[in-house]
């Protein structure tokens, strides 16, 4: 394990975090103290924390929302067999979504950096233009990447559109790349050397102890072994199932309730998206096909968004059902 002590700027602070999990726990505590519901990861394979229904779906409609959670994220093409100091096919994002975006969101965010041991008086924090767009989710927003001493530590976005719907009110989304941020705060040069739990714990574990083997196995799986025919079939199944679920009438004959199955359908959209990523990593999707696949996933995301705004959490009430849908984007 590396010994960052003499060079780590944060060690001068007695309250500096000592491990990866310490940083996660501090973020949890911080955002809990700011009133966010601390959720758990979504139980599906996703490419980024944004895919969690707590972000994608909850950013739709007018119902206020404030949530924070860790989301394990998978990007099959980024696998490097655990050898690259900075790249992983499975990593963690910390995600905060608050709707409507509060006026002091930047200050709240800076407070979270202080909470994980970044001394704002010694570091250079900058908000550098970076507009966010997710072609698969039909979503975009404006914001920044946040730099700490020239290093990107977070994405900060004001959602403008999701699933083709204008966001009204606007959600503020914060995404922290946890490994990179933690490596910086802890002064670690290779992700696998990062202390996962306290280095002085009876059984100290590094990130590598926990994940190196998994990175190797998934790199091999992603690049060489995944059966592309099965993946393709699953993609098509997920697409079909998504559309099937959305074709049901809202009235459920069994319960007698109005139940729009937006979230189960959205699960299928998430699946399709991940399967597409796997196919992409296997190199079986050509440049021209790529756009077509992205378009298919986006079509699902849009339909799910259309469905979600027909649910109470998405702002549906028996009254709104009669009024024309005004949340739909004009363009």
């Amino acid at each position: 394990m590396s010994n960052p002590a003499p060079t780590n700027p944060a060690t001068s602070n007695p309250a500096a975090p000592r491990s990866f999990q310490d940083i996660i726990l501090r973020l949890m505590n911080y955002w809990a103290s700011k009133g966010c519901a601390i959720l758990q990861p979504y139980d599906m394979e996703v490419g980024a924390g944004t895919f969690h229904p707590a972000t994608t779906l909850r950013s739709l409609g007018s119902t206020p929302w404030a949530a924070a959670y860790v989301q394990p994220s998978r990007r099959p093409t980024d696998g490097r067999y655990g050898e690259n100091p900075n790249r992983l096919q499975h990593y963690y994002q910390y995600q905060v979504l608050i709707k409507p975006s509060p006026a002091n969101l930047q200050e709240l965010y800076l407070g979270s950096l202080a909470a994980i041991g970044i001394d704002l008086a010694l570091h250079d924090i900058r908000f550098v233009e970076d507009d966010w767009e997710s072609p698969t989710l039909g979503a975009w927003g404006l914001g920044w990447e946040v730099w700490c001493d020239g290093m990107e530590v977070s994405q900060f976005t004001y959602f403008q559109q999701v699933g083709g719907h204008d966001c009204k009110p606007v959600s503020g989304e914060l995404t922290y790349g946890l490994e990179r941020l933690a490596m910086y705060v802890l002064g670690v040069d290779h992700v696998m050397n990062m202390p996962f739990n306290d280095p002085e714990a009876p059984i100290p574990l590094t990130y590598g102890d926990v994940f190196r083997q998994a990175e190797e196995q998934y790199s091999r799986y992603n690049f060489d072994a995944a059966d592309t025919e099965i993946l393709l079939r699953h993609f098509e199944d997920a697409e079909k199932e998504c559309e099937h679920l959305l074709s049901f009438p809202a009235e459920d004959p069994n319960s007698g309730k109005r139940i729009v199955m937006a979230q189960p359908a959205y699960d299928q959209c998430i699946k399709a998206s991940h399967l597409f990523n796997l196919l992409d990593a296997r190199g079986v999707i050509s440049v021209t096909e790529r756009q077509a696949y992205i378009g298919r996933v986006r079509a699902l995301a849009k339909k799910c968004a259309d469905a979600f705004v027909q649910t109470p959490a998405g702002g549906w009430t028996p009254d709104t059902s009669k009024a024309p849908d005004t949340s739909k984007a004009e363009n």
């Binding site: 060079t7 700027p9 100091p85 900075n86 001394d119 008086a121 010694l122 570091h123 250079d124 900058r126 700490c148 001493d149 020239g150 290093m151 910086y184």
Partner: peptide, 23 residues
């Protein structure tokens, strides 16, 4: 170019930037 003065005359900022550059 940093956006501030610091008590350590930018030593921490420069060190951080060097690390990113090296990567």
């Amino acid at each position: 170019v940093a956006n501030r003065e610091t008590a350590d005359n930018g030593a921490t900022i420069l060190k951080g930037n060097l690390k990113v550059l090296s990567a």
